[in-house]
């Protein structure tokens, strides 16, 4: 912290002059970039629609309240599908992610080349959103729950696999050494030395991802991959806002409950 001498007085400042200048410059450049980007967006926006937006919104809300309670009866089946997409998709993803993570973790991989392949699988799966997976899978498998399950599963491999292999790399190596010293086979070393140490995080991460997948599975229906998203799409297309609000309410409650379940299971595991 520089202290400047001004005549006989000492003036204290947080930054000296160049630092202050640089800091201002940084902010200025940042602001300019944001403004420039905003300009591009503004150019690509049809402002007459935007001017109309408040009216549209109030219209939507007015027609959406109260929700169409009777519509609830047709929602049970899609809701069940949504739940299944999330659960089966998570199970699928985790089942693939666990062996992949053991191949990707530095301390359990059989060979560096295998490790890079496993890492590639994880990165590739992480980089593609489940909706994009769904978009492609619907083309191949046709619309339906199956495409949704696979889309959610494919996306989950990367997410859970990354957290799994980080957990594997962080374990305490001493018990592993001790188990190996008893003459245990490689599989036994994994099951006694590694598994008890990583099991809590594997369960925790899986439940966490299940909770995220509930949310994701509400939208894969938008591209035809099953679940409540199909109803949402249909209701929006015909502008039935009371149905839309009913669906949103159901989604809100489902997500709320799943988050609560996931949080309490994770608390139990610690």
């Amino acid at each position: 912290m520089p202290v400047l001498e001004k005549g006989s007085e000492k003036v204290w400042q947080k930054r000296d002059r160049t630092q202050a200048l640089l800091s201002w410059l940084g902010w200025l450049v940042g602001a300019a970039v944001v403004l420039f980007c905003w300009q591009i967006i503004a150019d690509n926006t049809n402002w007459s629609f935007v001017a109309d937006a408040p009216e549209q919104a109030s219209h939507m809300i007015a027609r959406g309240i109260p929700p169409n309670w009777g519509y609830l009866n047709t929602l049970w089946q899609p809701l069940w599908d949504t739940l299944n997409i999330a659960t089966l998709g998570t199970l699928l993803g985790v089942a693939v992610a666990i062996p992949t993570a053991f191949l990707a973790a530095r301390n359990t991989t059989p060979h560096p080349i295998v490790r890079y392949i496993a890492l590639l699988v994880i990165v590739g799966s992480r980089s593609v959103n489940s909706l994009i997976w769904a978009l492609l899978l619907v083309v191949v498998l046709g619309p339906g729950v199956l495409a949704g399950i696979l889309a959610i599963g494919l996306r989950s491999i990367g997410f859970t696999g990354k957290l799994f292999y980080e957990a594997i790399e962080e374990i305490d190596p001493n018990p592993v050494e001790a188990v190996a010293a008893t003459g245990a086979s490689a599989a036994q070393v994994l099951s006694y030395g590694f598994w008890p140490q990583v099991m809590p995080s594997i369960f925790g991460v899986s439940v966490y991802r299940w909770d995220i997948n509930i949310r994701e599975s509400t939208v894969v229906g938008l591209v035809g991959a099953g679940g409540i998203g199909i109803q949402l799409q249909a209701s929006i297309n015909i502008l039935r806002w009371s149905q839309v609000s009913m669906i949103l309410l159901v989604v809100f409650l489902t997500v709320f409950v799943s988050e609560w379940i996931s949080a309490s299971v994770r608390r139990l595991l610690i």
Binding site: I41, N44, T45, V50, M60
Partner: peptide
């Protein structure tokens, strides 16, 4: 639905 298609 509110703002129309586009980046906004």
């Amino acid at each position: 639905v509110m703002l129309g298609f586009g980046p906004l």
